[in-house]
Simulated assay, not measured.
Amino acid sequence: MAPEVALVTRGVELDVLGIGYDAITDEQRASVVEAHPRPNFKKEILAAFTEGLKDRPDTTFGNVKADVLQHFLPGFERGDFVEVIQESDWAE
């Protein structure tokens, strides 16, 4: 995949998670950051995720957002998919 295409089609993976970071050059990254600065990005995006999820923690079951609440929401206990299956009322 061409770097420009990767940047567009995998924007969230690259922007938020850093997946594909090396697929674009330092110059390309600098150009993007110049147009769209990222001051305190990591801290602020995690705070935004936490704020958006704290009142509906059950929506994080089975997805990566549970990781956010586990780190930033005191008392949060993530659901366990295996336990849900094992404790199901079905006999088998």
Score class of each variant (00 low, 15 high):
1 M>A: 02
1 M>L: 04
1 M>G: 03
1 M>C: 02
2 A>W: 00
2 A>G: 12
4 E>K: 06
6 A>I: 03
6 A>K: 10
6 A>S: 14
7 L>W: 01
8 V>E: 11
9 T>F: 11
9 T>I: 07
10 R>W: 08
10 R>S: 01
10 R>M: 13
10 R>Q: 13
11 G>W: 03
13 E>K: 12
13 E>A: 06
13 E>Y: 07
13 E>T: 02
14 L>T: 05
15 D>L: 07
15 D>M: 07
15 D>Y: 12
16 V>K: 02
16 V>C: 05
17 L>N: 14
17 L>M: 10
18 G>K: 14
18 G>D: 04
18 G>T: 07
19 I>Q: 15
20 G>V: 05
21 Y>M: 13
24 I>R: 08
24 I>C: 15
26 D>K: 12
26 D>T: 09
28 Q>E: 10
29 R>V: 00
30 A>K: 05
30 A>H: 08
31 S>H: 02
31 S>P: 02
32 V>K: 03
32 V>N: 07
33 V>T: 02
35 A>N: 15
35 A>D: 03
36 H>R: 09
38 R>D: 02
38 R>L: 03
39 P>E: 08
39 P>C: 01
40 N>L: 00
40 N>F: 02
40 N>E: 14
41 F>Q: 05
41 F>P: 00
42 K>G: 04
42 K>Q: 03
43 K>N: 07
44 E>G: 03
45 I>N: 04
46 L>C: 09
46 L>I: 09
47 A>G: 04
47 A>D: 13
48 A>E: 03
48 A>C: 15
48 A>P: 03
48 A>K: 14
50 T>N: 06
50 T>I: 03
50 T>K: 10
51 E>L: 12
52 G>C: 14
54 K>A: 07
54 K>T: 11
55 D>I: 00
55 D>Y: 14
55 D>C: 10
56 R>N: 08
57 P>V: 10
58 D>C: 15
59 T>M: 15
59 T>E: 14
60 T>F: 10
60 T>R: 05
61 F>L: 14
61 F>C: 14
63 N>G: 06
63 N>M: 09
64 V>Y: 00
64 V>K: 00
65 K>M: 07
66 A>H: 02
66 A>I: 12
67 D>P: 00
68 V>P: 03
68 V>H: 01
69 L>F: 10
69 L>W: 14
71 H>P: 03
72 F>C: 08
73 L>H: 06
74 P>E: 08
74 P>V: 00
74 P>C: 02
76 F>E: 06
78 R>A: 15
78 R>N: 07
79 G>T: 09
79 G>W: 08
80 D>F: 09
82 V>W: 15
83 E>N: 11
83 E>G: 01
83 E>K: 09
84 V>C: 08
84 V>Q: 12
84 V>M: 12
84 V>K: 11
85 I>N: 06
86 Q>S: 15
86 Q>R: 12
88 S>C: 10
88 S>F: 11
88 S>T: 07
88 S>I: 06
90 W>G: 02
90 W>F: 12
90 W>M: 09
90 W>P: 04
90 W>L: 13
91 A>N: 09
92 E>S: 15
92 E>W: 05
